[in-house]
Design a protein around this nucleic acid. Sequence first.
RNA 1: GGGCGCAUAGCUCAGCUGGCUAGAGCAACUGGUUUACAUCCAGUAGGUCGGGGGUUCGAGUCCCUCUGCGCCCACCA
Length: 879
Amino acid sequence: MSHAPRRRSRIDVPERPVLDGLEDKWAARWRADGIYTFDRSADRAEVFSIDTPPPTVSGALHVGHVFSYTHTDTVARFQRMRGRSVFYPMGWDDNGVPTERRVENHFGVRCDASLPYVEHLDLPDEPPKDRGDYVAVSRVNFIELCERLTAEDEQAFEDLFVHLGLSVDWSTMYSTIGQRARLIAQKAFLADLARGDVYSADAPSMWDVTFQMAVSQAELEDRDRPGAYHDLVFPLTDGSAIAPEGSAPAPGGGPALMVSTTRPELVVSCVALVAHPDDERYRSLFGTTVRTPVFGVEVPVLAHRLADPTKGTGAAMICTFGDITDVTWWRELDLPARAVIGRDGRFAADPPEWLDDEAARTAYARIAHKAAGGARHVMVDMLRESGNLIGDPKPVTHPVKFYEKGDKPLEIVQSRQWYIRNGGRDDLVRDDLVRRGEDIAWHPPYMQTRFTDWVNGLNGDWLVSRQRYFGVPIPVWHRLDDEGLPVPDDVLVPEADRLPVDPAIDRPTGFDESQRGRPGGFVGDPDVMDTWATSSLTPQIACGWGVDDDLFARTFPMDMRPQGHDIIRTWLFSTMVRSRSEFGAVPWRHAALSGWILDPDRKKMSKSRGNVVTPMGLLDTYGSDGVRYWAAQGRPGTDTAFDEKEMKVGRRLAIKLLNASKFALGFGGDPDGAVHEPLDSAMLADLAALVDDATAAFEGFDYARALERTEAFFWWFCDDYLELVKLRAYGDGPAATSATNALARALSTLQRLFAPFLPFSTEEVWSWWMEGSIHLAAWPDAVTLREAAGSWNPFVMSVASDVLRELRRAKSEAKRNMKAPIDLATVVDEQERREALARIAHDVRDAGRVNELDIVDGDSFSVTVTFAEAVDDHRTARP
RNA sequence: GGGCGCAUAGCUCAGCUGGCUAGAGCAACUGGUUUACAUCCAGUAGGUCGGGGGUUCGAGUCCCUCUGCGCCCACCA
């Protein structure tokens, strides 16, 4: 809870204030004093809770993190100063594939779940160059290595964030592999299972052959890859039938149907040919059969609306499975599954049983064991030899599906996997999720479209099981039948008070360890959850769902979800799904989407591009406040170029704040004292308008606008207002008191307006004259400022600045010192502005060192200047 | 193929619901500077607001269209 500023008994300003060292000094103090500790006594209405993105722990943070986390921090600091008890936790996303990859490469190991645990693992000093030479270690050893490395990384992350000045409550830290996250992820999984929102199914799914695991729709990305169309002819089994127009004859001259394919190696998996029902070329052949090239398997010719008459020959080969359309065709046309590609991405070693012909089995032997690419070469040779390949392959570049973190094309492999219902197969759920997008305020608003489009484009439920190791285990066991095989749909679940469990180590209630893997016994589910399955629960984990009900009641639903716009389809969407199924509510009120950092060539900065800039050096060079200034200029949702020049500007601003504060405090004014001089009143009135503007901007999560306005006012305040009043402030009497009080009040206000952006330098200057941390001081109040301003003349401030500018111009053009005395300045202006000028003439004369100021009636503004030691008169005017 | 966003000074960007001669910072240039600040100050120059239509008394701002760039999505045989 913030409080009204309280002045210290004496002002203590350093002789020569500097920025250096402020980060360490104040970060230590904030931690010692618990400045950012969440106040658990606050009611929900007084709380502002933030669903902080847990950064992926797989290496180092980069400037992109500094950028977006600063945005959130400015909002957190604003809300805290406004009086909210801010719940600002930090999490580490340390489970999942990126962490495993990093651990493998860091230690030179790979996990082999069949190996036994080794007490004191002997690792090579240097990891082997070739991944093939990595040391195989047991699952438990591997997890230990993951925990060891992530602990180091997380400490480094924390150090950086502390140095950056994030006002995170570090006592509320969690990690997605930690005890609490495992417990909550398993509890949510079992709750979904009990409701029927989780199920397992044996079905084709996208499969990464490198990681040897299933992946979900949200993790796919298209990449353009070179390929080639191969025109293949399939002889008609009815030799008297009429071949479709345009098709080349079969080898030997019989009628044939020609298809064009980019994956000729899948001919062995062909289960049918398909064409559009209205396609005249193929209409007479529907229901007939053809023989596959080389293998001679008889397959039907079928009709389906998804066949595109304009692609290739209009007829397509259905293979199990070449792409997602194959899966649709396979399912809707009720075709057999003839899969040959295994989990390692290679063709099965033994000839499949549907090849009954000896020649076919011999042909298959030539592609057995091969990966897709190798098999393709061999297959093309065989097709050419057999005469089924017509002409040469025609090269094309076409999009191919990849796992976003993988580097080999995905295959489609049939396997039993766990799914969470997300609306992908249920229109009612889907529509409901889209509607719930309305319950969230999106910043910027157009980001909602991304969400809506994604939900509407779902083509299946969310596949959450992963065949990996460092993740939250799927918390179930499978009952084994008399032959030792898992009984489908007979899962054994742990009691709630046993969570979290590791089914590979723990056993289901009522079973003995000796029954593990035995007929009539049980076996633990070997899989872990998708990293998004735990990340989708960050509100539940952070707020303590089921483990800290009091905290949960005070913080959930949360106020703000900050995140990058690129993970709307994963993190944001999946969090919505879990919150909907468990609570029937949206998890937060606001979604604040941040943009990306672009390198100077306007490319996204990312580790894979190798163009990242590490932040520590920048924080040292420009100060954390300088770097934060640059970050805070990035508008919500807008990509921003990495720009060190702006950091330099930010550093200058922070230094200016130190110096201006030192100067203004030197006058010893009272920030609560009265003001009566026209210029002082007008300045405070303008300041009140600034407070309104900055407050409204922050309430709309537009921190960048708040900063821009505050900064513009501040420079004007230093360059014009301070110059106009400083001679008066040096004097005595009521006019001087008005100036010093106005300066003190403005300073107190400006320091607080800057506090969310420049937490270190504002804290420093605040400490010179105020009790307690500025970050717990109340946000400035425009109403009080207006009361203090009293009545003011709206022309005073602008006419003062205008005249001052003209006096400076005259001096500059005469190449004189800004302090050069002016003998006579004649100002021509309209009536209202003349009257205003007359009231502040003493301040303008002081600031311009003007001996005599004449104010003359006229239509347009102009200023004529005569210097004391007249070289020549100087007249300036605006046209 | 569908959708979203962007296009304003050499560079990075403001310009909110249309309204006074289009702004800032940086860079450039010209000067100044013994007491808050050289981590400074003042000034100068620089723009047909991507092109073309339209609505309006009035358009950088609203509508249409075209162009370029970026991103997201798509069943890519």
